[in-house]
Design a binder for these strands. Structure first.
Lengths: 193, 193
DNA sequence: CGCGGGTTTGATGATGCTCAAGCCCGGTGG
DNA sequence: CCACCGGGCTTGAGCATCATCAAACCCGCG
């Protein structure tokens, strides 16, 4: 279990992990399984843990007044999941995170993350991920500000083709900020062209 | 000039800056003025500097095929501006950043930022800003995925009321991902209700 | 066979865009 | 002082895009 995480950290850092640090990772990250449909986080709760996905698929969404699920993120193995806002500020979350596939995660609690921050490779990884995350989010936002639904789908195909095989189209649609019907029509036309 | 930046850093960190560190900040951040309309960054260029805005107002935008400016960010004093993607990966930027008001910035080059990273208060500040930035971007995205133009404007009024006094409505509209005409109509109706 | 989740299709309507015109107002030059 | 200009904002009419609602389809499964 932990090996996946350890090589993930190594892969995102120039500094290697010492034997001691590896032991700390194994100590602080506790494994937990989620069956399909189980919640990692429900709105109103405080996000006590951040999770590294060893295998499986999770989704993060907010529910609006009308009861529509707005999917903000889809995550699969080798990604992290959790609500930063709630985790760091210890406030009730406005998001839900649940398992779409049976999944295995490694959880790190808020109390323990401080000990991870003492590890240089972990800081390095975190900064790198933050950068990438921020950049990706900016591009995603740009799509939503300027581009049509069809362009957004094309962009999605370029950046996240893996998701098509893992999540149903209605979730992809929500992730793109359109309805499943619109996505269906876009796909039909795209196929013909 | 530098005092604003120094107290900004102090305000976002628990660790104080030492006299020596303050000297480093003064050395590495070089002041530069931008007159209204001048470019801090043009698309195609590599973003060599990150900027702290001491006073003034900047805007960041991308231009699409049709020539429309899509505004991704508006920044005023005590904010940072720059393109992370281009800055860290040293790739040509897809964004433009220019001055909307005459502005005074403190610039830090890519070469020098490594020395700043040795200062604990600076790292602390950076992590905190990244968190906030990431959280804010997520919320902004949520608005674009799930909410109507009107809701987005309401949300904007709550979170960034200062911008109304600093930027023309057509820029606000672009920032919200709508046309100036639509924004105008929304504002009329909002006034009546 | 019947059921249920996922997807598609069609008809209709709302939301927001485009294009064109006009207004408001501060600045400039005759 | 006024006429004119230009940038920013508003208004209106028509249109494109996308959402909504309802129905049907497809397919794996008990």
């Amino acid at each position: 279990m932990h090996d996946t995480l350890i090589s993930f950290i190594q892969g995102h850092a120039t500094t290697p992990l010492t034997e001691q640090e590896i032991a700390v990772v194994k100590e602080l990250f506790v494994p937990r399984k989620y069956r399909k449909g189980q919640f990692f986080l429900q709105e109103g709760e405080i996000c006590k843990n951040y999770g590294f996905i060893v295998n499986g698929a999770m989704r993060q969404y907010a529910v609006d007044e009308k009861g529509t699920e707005n999917i903000l993120g889809l995550q699969i193995e080798n990604w992290w999941c959790g609500d930063r806002d709630s985790y760091f500020k210890e406030q009730p979350s406005i998001y839900n995170i649940d398992a779409w596939e049976n999944s295995e995660l490694l959880l790190i609690s808020k109390e323990n993350i401080d000990r991870m921050v003492a590890i240089p490779a972990f800081i390095e990884m975190r900064i790198k991920l933050d950068d990438n995350h921020s950049i990706a989010n900016q591009k995603r936002l740009l799509c939503h500000i300027g581009a049509s639904a069809e362009k957004r789908y094309e962009n999605f195909l370029q950046h996240y083709p893996q998701f098509l095989e893992r999540f149903p189209l209605r979730m992809i649609a929500s992730f793109l900020g359109i309805t499943k019907e619109t996505l269906s029509r876009i796909r039909r036309h795209a196929g013909n062209s």
